Simulated assay, not measured.
Amino acid sequence: MTIQSTSVSSKQSHLHSEAVYQTLPCKGYFPNQFHLKTIPQNIGWYLAGFADGEGSFYVTFRYRKDYTWKWRITAVFNVANKDRVMIYLFKKQFKCGTVRDIGNDKYLYEVDTLNALQHVVIPFFKEYRFFSAKKKKEFAIFQKIVNILAITPRTFSQIKEILKLRMQLGSDRINLFKNLDTSILEVIQKEVIDKNTTQP
C-alpha cells in the first residue's frame, strides 16, 4: 500500500508540474519576465550540459513571395528528447519558445523569434557556457548570424554572409547546403536591380 500511495503521489505531482509549465508564454519573449540571475546555478549548468548534447542551432530559409529577396530567414535554437519534463524545464526557465510532440515519444522545445534569441537564449549560454568544442563553435557562429538578422534593412551581401555562416554551422550537411544555397542565390539574383537594394 505504501508503494502504491507513493506512485499516485508522484503521478499527481508530475501532472501538477506539467499544468504549471503549460500556462507559460507560448512563443515570443515578453520583457521583464526572463531574468538570468533568477535561474538557480545548478539548474542553469544542468540545462547547458543537456543542450550541449541534445541542442541544435540552425538557420532556415523559407520562400516568401511578399519578401523583397523572396526568402524568410529564421535562426532557431531547439532541444529534442523523450523526457517531457526535461523539455518543459527549458520552457519554464527561459519563459519563451514552444514545446511540441514530434512523434516517437519525443518532444521538441524551440525558440525561433529573434527577440527571444537575443535577450534569452544567447545571454543564457554566454553565462552557462558549453564544454564541447563543437557546440562552442556552433554557438559562436550562431551569434554572428543573429547579429546580422538584427540589422534592418538587410542587404544582399548580408544574406550571402548568412549563407556562408550557415555552411559552417552545418558542416555535416555541406553538400546539401551547397545545392540549396545555389537555388536561394538564383532566386535572389533575379530580384536584384543593383547591390544597394535592401530588404525591409
Rank of each mutant, 00 (worst) to 15 (best):
G49F: 02
T74D: 01
T98M: 14
I87T: 00
L15P: 09
P25N: 05
D66H: 14
R64D: 03
F131A: 11
D83V: 01
T68W: 02
I151L: 00
T98I: 13
Q4L: 11
Y67C: 10
R129S: 12
S13N: 13
K95F: 03
S171A: 14
V111F: 04
D101Q: 05
Q189D: 08
S7H: 08
T68F: 14
Y88R: 12
F61L: 03
G53S: 14
K195H: 11
L15M: 08
Q4I: 02
K91G: 06
E138H: 15
I39K: 05
I145W: 07
I102Y: 03
C96E: 10
Q189S: 10
Q189P: 00
Q189K: 13
F125V: 13
Y109E: 05
A48S: 15
R129F: 06
I102A: 02
P40M: 03
Q189L: 14
F30L: 14
F61G: 00
G97F: 11
K65T: 06
E54D: 06
V146R: 02
S17G: 00
T98Q: 10
D112G: 04
H35C: 09
Y63V: 10
R100M: 07
R100F: 06
Q143F: 03
F125H: 12
F142H: 11
L163P: 00
V187H: 04
F139S: 05
K95S: 07
L117C: 08
H35T: 02
L108K: 08
K92M: 06
T113A: 07
P25V: 02
I141V: 09
K164E: 12
H119E: 14
R72G: 04
G170V: 03
G103K: 08
R64F: 11
L108V: 02
K136C: 10
N196T: 15
S56F: 04
Y107N: 03
L180N: 09
D194E: 12
A75D: 01
T182D: 03
T98H: 09
V111A: 05
Y88C: 01
S10D: 15
Q93F: 11
L165D: 10
S171Q: 14
D52I: 03
K178C: 07
I43A: 14
D181L: 04
N42L: 03
K11M: 07
A116E: 08
Q93W: 11
I162H: 15
N104K: 12
K27S: 06
K70M: 11
F34S: 01
N196W: 12
A133Y: 09
E110W: 05
H119W: 10
N115D: 15
F77P: 07
I151W: 00
K144F: 06
A19H: 07
W45M: 09
T152N: 08
Q118P: 08
F139N: 07
M167T: 09
T60I: 01
L36V: 01
Y63D: 01
L169E: 13
N32R: 02
L180Y: 04
R166T: 10
M86D: 08
T74A: 06
S5F: 01
I122D: 13
N147Y: 08
F130I: 04
K144T: 07
D181H: 11
K137M: 06
E161M: 04
I73R: 03
Y29D: 10
P200R: 15
I159G: 05
L47D: 13
G103L: 08
V76A: 05
V8C: 05
K136A: 09
K27I: 02
F124M: 10
K126N: 15
I122K: 12
V20E: 11
Y29N: 04
W71Q: 02
A80I: 13
Y58Q: 05
Y88D: 10
E191I: 00
